[in-house]
Structure formats: structure tokens, C-alpha cells
Write a protein that binds this DNA or RNA. Structure first.
Lengths: 207, 207
DNA sequence: CGAAAAACTACCCAAAAGGGTAACATCTGG
DNA sequence: CCAGATGTTACCCTTTTGGGTAGTTTTTCG
């Protein structure tokens, strides 16, 4: 297994150094230590780490939160918050970014290491969850008017991004029929386009 | 919001009391304090808490791990490990149970509270996310020509089933611009409609 | 068997989406 | 500072989709 690269975002140099040493003692590689939001993003772009240790408060601002949001939407890697402030406001904002860990200073080597390990493992597991298949019974469960099997197979083709023509060809029916069926499903799903139907199907599969 | 019930599984009475006090100071309710695996399971069966604080080592054994496994397979509630031992073997076993948190003693009130909050929030989110979120870097990884951030936010709206008009309104740009952007993404994704793009995005997230 | 439901087809019109071209404004990095 | 990338808008035209109506065939089931 290759070594894990850790990006440290911490504006207090002494603490950053502390963390870095703890990391290296435990066979992690510190890919960089940065002190500002801008440098953090620079690092993420040019030298993507496997995980980020992120101080919430950088030079007085809560810009760690913004970095966290960016990591979630763009980079999809785990990150762990480090903070001296454990007040409710900070925590409230922080938790909405769904961090893999949250450590309140003072730091301990053991605490850092174990939190890192857990975060990496859990994140790896998370990405293994794949997209569920559509299930007719699951979908009908939450509809007043149930989708028929035929309609369902049309919906699956729409879900896979097929056009009416393609659907007509694979099902050996006319495009008129395809359109009719699809329109019927729109009534049942309470939607009005293919894309909204796809989103709706995803939603219905969740409960 | 109703109060959160916490089950404490900890065989050192002094520490258990410490934890319980910290919990109550932060408006959590302690549903029970138990000292053994058997009592823990008894509690889970009769009085299911919202979250469990779980010492790994109960009277010399690592039976905390077994409780964790039971929680995962049967109860599906979040749990947080608490341990004095942060050796690699313990950690290795612990991480496979995918705990929501892992705290090395000595405990601090702030550390406990924030870890609890994060664990509860993440666990709640987890069940809502059987479908993975789209992540830009993940998608670009497999494209010759990368999708820009702006284009990506458009794609997310398409993924949610929004029409060009809706997208234009939420992003405060003209529908012409929306159409232009979308067309550009079609080139990059090698698609030619919203529905095929949605399917493609799903596919790219799995590679 | 016979009625009801589901499936299939056609046609028409309207709305939305797709495709191409052109132009201008920012922004960013060398 | 300049070049290239990104974002913005407009215009025109084509194709695909959506929505409504109307009808026939096939299947299913009491």
C-alpha cells in the first residue's frame, strides 16, 4: 500500500509542525502545510492529497468551512476538522459539511492517528456504495396510481438516457406508443419531462 | 426536537460517571450506563438509544468490537468508540466496524460533545444518500476535456431534473447562456441530451 | 364469456431542447 | 501586459419532447 498524503491547513506554525511530526511518526506523508484558504485550494488543485487536516479558524475567519465545502463538491476526499473553539455555532456550521472527524485542541498523537485511520477507512467504504437499481415495487409503493410493468421498462430506458426513437427500436413499438406510455407515466409520477422523471425515480427509491 | 438518548457502555464506573455528567450538561439524556456486553445488548433490545458510546475494552476483553458489529447488523444506530488503548491492532479491528467516531482517553467534554454531534448528523445524512452525490473531480478524472466548475453546477441542476428556464432563474443568467453551457458539456461528456448526460454522470461516478 | 385494464397506434400542435455561429467580457497565469 | 480559458449573451434553425384526443388490439381475470 502506498503512503497516504496528508494536507495540513493550519495557521499556527507551531501546531502545524506538531501535527506534521505526529503524521510522519505514523508513516503518513505530509504533502504540504499551508496557512490560508487560497494556498489550500492551490494545493488541492495541483497536488491532491488523500486526506486533509483542516483548522476551521484561519486568521480569525471561519474559512476552514469554505474549504470543506469545496472539498465536498469538487474533490471528494475525506477531511478532519481541528479547532480550539468548540462553541455551538462553530460546530453547527461544521457539521453541515459532514466532516470525517472533528478534533478539539489540544491534540494528541494517538487521537490524531486513530481519527485519521477511521476517516480514511470510512471514506473508502462510502465510495463503494453504488447506485441502486430501480425497483418497480419500491416505486409503486409511494404512488397513488401504480406504474405498469411495461411502463416501468420504458422508464428504465429513459433512466439510461435513451431517446424515444431508441426506445421504440429496442422495444419494437412505434415512437407514438413510446410517447403515449411516457406521457402516462408523467401523470403517475407527477412530472413533466424525462429529466424530472429521472430525479423523481431516484427520490422514490429512497423511501 | 426531542432529546437524544445516549447509551454508555463503559466498565470503569468513574469514567462512566464522568461521561454521563458531560452528556447531561449538554442536553443529552443518558438512557443507561452498562458495564458488560450482555447488559449492553439487553439495553439495545429493550430501550434502543439514539447513539452509543462504547468502550472497546470491557473487563480485559475487546468485546466492544462485538457490540459494534451487533449494532451495525441489527440496530443501525451510530456509535462512538472510547478507548485508552490506541495500538494498531485495536484500531485495525475497530475501524472495520465503521464507527462514527473514535476517541482516545483522556476524554474532554468538548471533544465528546462535538464528536457526538458530528456522529449523529453524519449518520442521519448517510441514510439519505443511497445515491452518491456528483463530484467534479471524480467526473473529470475520466474526461479528456474537463468540465469547469460553472458547467458542473449546471450539470447538477440538470441532474436534479431542472429545465433550462429554471436553471437560468436560479443561476441568474439567460437561457441562451444555459443552453450554451449545456451544449459545451455535451461535447465534453460525449452526450447529446439531458437524459444521456445524467446516465453518463452516474457512470463516471462509478469508474 | 365479457368487461376492464393495459398496450399499441396515429395525428396535430406547442414547448423545450439541441446545434451552430458570432461576439464581447472577465479572469487568470506566464 | 497579453493570450487563452471561461463565462456571458444573442440569433437562427432543427429536432425532440410533451400534451391532448381518438381509436384499435391484446391481455387479464372474475
Amino acid at each position: 500500500m502506498s503512503t497516504i498524503n496528508v494536507l495540513i491547513v493550519e495557521d499556527e506554525p507551531l501546531i502545524a509542525e506538531d501535527i506534521a511530526q505526529a503524521m510522519e511518526k505514523n508513516d503518513f506523508a505530509v504533502s504540504a502545510i499551508v496557512y490560508s484558504k487560497e494556498d489550500a485550494i492551490e494545493q488541492l488543485n495541483t497536488n491532491l492529497p488523500d486526506i486533509v487536516l483542516l483548522d476551521i479558524n484561519l486568521s480569525g475567519e471561519m474559512s476552514g468551512i469554505e474549504i470543506a465545502e469545496k472539498i465536498n463538491t469538487v474533490y471528494n476526499i475525506p477531511f478532519i476538522f481541528i479547532t480550539s473553539y468548540s462553541d455551538k455555532l462553530t460546530l453547527e456550521k461544521a457539521k453541515h459539511t459532514e466532516p470525517s472527524g472533528y478534533i478539539v485542541k489540544p491534540l494528541t498523537e494517538a487521537g490524531l492517528y486513530s481519527t485519521l485511520e477511521i476517516a480514511l477507512y470510512n471514506h473508502a467504504q462510502k465510495n463503494k456504495r453504488k447506485f441502486p437499481e430501480l425497483a418497480l415495487n419500491k416505486i409503486n409503493q409511494h404512488l397513488n396510481s401504480p406504474v405498469s410493468e411495461r411502463e416501468f421498462s420504458l422508464l428504465q430506458l429513459i433512466y439510461d438516457g435513451k431517446t424515444n426513437k431508441q426506445i421504440a427500436d429496442t422495444m419494437f413499438i412505434s415512437t407514438n406508443t413510446v410517447k403515449k406510455h411516457i406521457n402516462n407515466t408523467y401523470l403517475k409520477l407527477d412530472t413533466s419531462s424525462r429529466a424530472t422523471s429521472i430525479a423523481r425515480l431516484r427520490e422514490l427509491m429512497l423511501l
